[in-house]
């Protein structure tokens, strides 16, 4: 591990230890803070008993669906709009202010339109993620050096081959940023929607535990979610670093 990684790990470990001491020493109100060791033990028992499996599977399924749809739609929309400069200039102000909208406020309206169930949840995750991917695609295609498509013309490549062999690899780093954002946003959208007013899923389970004063379960499920998000981000970050390293090597 790098020196920065070691220091980072040390900081996280110290923070967890401080929380443990504060909770055990009675510095924090009992019930508010549960010592991290007890939270981990509770999570272990939940996982072993399989109590959260159904909720977890549902949440991950929703995130995967929302994210997959957002990646495909965002990339396609970005690619199409990039080819139509006039439409793109007209859309720019909307894209720039898209994330200023308070999305979760739409969720109740979506429930009225789409009914209770998975559909409105996936729709929120999709709406939250799709524009990040679209903007990243536009940025990526903008940054393709002009010489590259010209070279493709010199080699008499067709539009499909130009897209696959020249444009995609050249735009890859920006596309990857889009993927990372879309995954994070799909998680946020799905969990928040479940938290607000769903009847199943991890977000719902956390809200349910909170409403029943079952703070131990609540913290354990939060820890589970935190772990999943950190692992997914870590994997994507590692893949991105490898991609960038390969580009630099060439």
């Amino acid at each position: 591990m790098s020196r920065a990684g070691l220091v980072r790990t040390a900081i996280v470990v110290a923070a967890v230890a401080a929380l443990e001491l504060a909770a055990r020493g009675g510095l924090l109100r009992a019930g508010v803070a549960v010592p991290p060791s007890e939270v981990a033990a509770k999570l272990w028992s939940i996982l072993r008993a399989g109590d959260a499996n159904a909720d977890l599977a549902e949440t991950l399924g929703n995130v995967a669906l929302a994210c997959g749809l957002a990646l495909v739609a965002g990339f396609s929309l970005g690619a199409v709009v990039h080819g139509l400069p006039r439409l793109r200039r007209a859309l720019d102000p909307f894209l720039a202010s898209y994330y200023a909208l308070p999305f979760f406020a739409f969720y109740p309206v979506l429930i009225v339109v789409l009914g209770i169930g998975r559909l409105p949840i996936v729709a929120i995750g999709f709406m939250f993620a799709v524009v990040a991917m679209m903007v990243a695609t536009l940025n990526g295609f903008d940054r393709i050096p002009r010489a590259l498509p010209r070279t493709a013309r010199v080699w008499r490549m067709g539009p499909v081959r130009t897209a696959l062999k020249i444009k995609l690899p050249s735009a890859a780093p920006h596309l990857f940023t889009g993927i990372k954002l879309a995954v994070a946003y799909a998680f946020i959208g799905v969990i928040a929607a479940e938290f607000i007013m769903a009847t199943s899923g991890l977000g719902y389970a956390i809200a349910y535990a909170f409403n029943n004063y079952d703070n131990r379960t609540m913290y354990a499920l939060m820890l589970l979610l935190l772990g999943i998000v950190v692992v997914v981000n870590g994997v994507l970050h590692g893949a991105e670093q490898r991609l960038l390293a390969r580009r630099r090597a060439r």
Binding site: V32, I188, M222, L226
Partner: peptide, 17 residues
């Protein structure tokens, strides 16, 4: 990386805390 992880966390789950 700590800040970026915090940014991509669904903060709504922290609301009960």
């Amino acid at each position: 990386p700590i800040l970026v992880s915090l940014y991509s966390l669904p903060k709504i789950t922290l609301y009960p805390v």
